[in-house]
């Protein structure tokens, strides 16, 4: 009990005192995860759009595959990418293992199915009339897509936030692909794993607090957007 309260107190002090080592880790975390979301979102939205409105053979199969991919544990995704990027793997030439790029790739792989699945649900709830109206009013396909996405933007926002929450707190793939290297690939979750193994509970809790605050903020936003979505519908 004593450990928890004193570690939490130290954690707060670390955070507020602007401890550079701590903030560096937080910065790396955000940089990697935001980049991953930014890169994953456009193709994921496109795919979600095709799944929601396209008519092509294998659409149902693809939906099933996306939903299955959601259930793949992060470490399995990490391991698969590890084997691909390893020196002896097919992409070994790229020398990406244990770099932030590898972490970004892992997080993209993690975020992608969740983004697609949630965006698909959001787009399915979109009104078919919105698409028809846009097209009748002379919108190009691209503009009509954009219009439709704007109409369901709260649902899409929820998809983004949920995916971001998933990857920023994920430890398995980041550890495997990034290697938890100080100053380079150590992010919040891998640092927590390390600090805990070292018995440095204050550092671990400080980082845990950051994740907790983040999760709280994301959830508030999520509720806000979901509420908006319901009122609009």
């Amino acid at each position: 009990m004593e450990t928890i309260s004193s570690a939490t107190w130290q954690a707060l002090q670390l955070l507020l005192s602007g401890d550079t080592a701590l903030w560096e880790i937080i910065l790396i975390s955000f940089r990697v995860s935001i980049l991953a979301i930014l890169l994953a979102t456009p193709p994921a939205l496109l795919m979600a759009f095709m799944l929601a409105f396209g008519q092509f053979p294998g659409r149902r199969l693809l939906i099933a595959i996306v939903n299955t991919a959601l259930a793949i544990p992060a470490v399995v995704i990490g391991l698969t990418l590890y084997l691909l990027l390893s020196r002896s793997g097919p992409l070994g030439e790229w020398r990406l293992l244990f770099t932030q790029t590898a972490m970004v790739l892992g997080q993209i792989a993690l975020a992608f199915p969740l983004l697609v699945a949630m965006a698909h649900t959001a787009l399915q709830a979109a009104d078919r009339r919105a698409w028809e109206t846009a097209r009748m009013l002379g919108a190009s396909r691209l503009r009509a897509v954009w219009t439709l996405m704007y109409e369901v933007r709260f649902g899409l926002m929820s998809a983004l936030l949920a995916s971001f929450g998933r990857i920023i707190a994920e430890v398995g793939a980041s550890m495997m692909l990034g290697g938890n290297i100080l100053h380079y690939t150590r992010n919040i979750p891998t640092a927590i794993a390390l600090e805990t193994s070292k018995g440095e509970f204050a550092q671990g809790i400080a980082l845990g607090l950051v994740l907790l605050l983040l999760a709280f903020a994301l959830n508030l936003l999520l509720h806000y957007f979901q509420g908006k979505g319901q009122i609009a519908a």
């Binding site: 244990f98 550890m175 290697g179 938890n180 100080l182």
Partner: peptide
Amino acid sequence: YREAGQGMGEVLQM
């Protein structure tokens, strides 16, 4: 110089 923050097995692999 890379500080991995991982176990021996992982560090050997890295």
